[in-house]
Design a protein around this nucleic acid. Sequence first.
DNA 1: AAGTGGTCTAGACCACGAT
DNA 2: TCGTGGTCTAGACCACTTG
Lengths: 258, 258
Amino acid sequence: MATQPPSHLTDPSAAGPETAGPAFSPLYQQIKALITRSLQAGEWKPGEAIPSEVELAARFKVSQGTVRKAIDELAAENLLVRRQGKGTFVATHAEEKVQYRFLRLTPDDGDTGPVQRRFIDCRRLRAPAEVARALDLKSGDAALQIRRLLLFKGKPVVFDDIWLHGGLFKGLTAERLSEYRGPMYALFETEFGVRMIRAEEKLRAVAADATAAELLQLPVGTPLLSVERLSRTYEDRPVEFRRGLYNTAEHFYRNEVS
Amino acid sequence: MATQPPSHLTDPSAAGPETAGPAFSPLYQQIKALITRSLQAGEWKPGEAIPSEVELAARFKVSQGTVRKAIDELAAENLLVRRQGKGTFVATHAEEKVQYRFLRLTPDDGDTGPVQRRFIDCRRLRAPAEVARALDLKSGDAALQIRRLLLFKGKPVVFDDIWLHGGLFKGLTAERLSEYRGPMYALFETEFGVRMIRAEEKLRAVAADATAAELLQLPVGTPLLSVERLSRTYEDRPVEFRRGLYNTAEHFYRNEVS
DNA sequence: AAGTGGTCTAGACCACGAT
DNA sequence: TCGTGGTCTAGACCACTTG
């Protein structure tokens, strides 16, 4: 069977030779973008199955192999999860085997025990300059500040100072945070429709100030691991900026490099 | 054309139904293993091109698509580098755009300037217990210790304490390290045939001791980022164990999570 | 048995780089 | 112009899950 020219969707050659545009986009990339748009629009909710490969192939009028390659990449980026024999599912921060997917802290002695959370406060404020810059806000726009502790085996190990995009999290209160069972990112997902996709972190060693020292029950000046995280949702839009202070006396931050 | 059963290489169904073995290995995984073996054996050296996909397909008697899938995974793992129109090349730590591929330290103000190295010592010793455990050595086996500084813009920022598998690096001296232009991992590759493929890191915040403080020109007790790295070569064999102490006053360790 | 993703093949054509 | 990797298709069969 002769290969039909990829006639539908964007045909770069149809636009004339000297349009100095994005030049060329493979079909599977265009399909990938379409699927991402549907995810973003909430056509399929986290945890649900998306249509089968053959259905999507029919919908987009491409071969199954092309859809497959698009889904392969989305699965590699953790937006989708494939399960043989069952289907392809929208990834979720809830109901995961490993909760706290973004938290790379591991206890020196293998097992964690369940993680406790203790919320200190949750306030609506004008975004400070640094936060506004990180979240693409105008200085003076509203932001949400959450401060909390994470406890391992009853002992405080992490102190988080979290800033959220004000417009996206209206009505979030300390109460709702405390009541919710499960990771914070799962709450964001189900209650506010904001899915954390990926994040960039900047790590440093710092000395504990008075606040951190008291909350983590350590002497002032104790070395702490500072983890600055900028989290993004679909289309790389930044929606959360946080700074965590980790007590690494009995835990470490794990990473793989290649 | 009817698909031939994947007749050559391992046919799992031929071994009888109740061999509780590895059960099933896709053809492309077997091809991947074969290519990896050739890389390990040095059939193609770092920086060189490997045979084209059609050649490999002919050699292994599979379709080009199957070879392609194997190479795709090896490229994703940074063992190979594809270059359209030119061929597929063995990855190398030398002649890379970005040298120090494993070093995730970034200056706060964008650009680094060239990194200087200063070697403190290079000794052949019996492996301490911790090192022996990490490198799969018997306690008492020979190991190589290298200590050095990395300087950014003339100022010391990293103090590395490096331990190498003794048997693999015979004849390595401080002189050869100093003379060599380019990253240490490039030297290991060209002079000793040991390629670093991937590594696991454990990060902590610690206080500078007297040695580190002096070398990094900081007060004793300054918080430093401790980076413990276990590097592996082909087949996941551990060959290097190091502990770096990073001054993160004007640099940070970057990471991506998803 | 039916439906899903996973593997494998064969062949066509495209984009890129060297000649 | 040729050889390389990159995209796309179509179809067969395999492995896993569910009814």
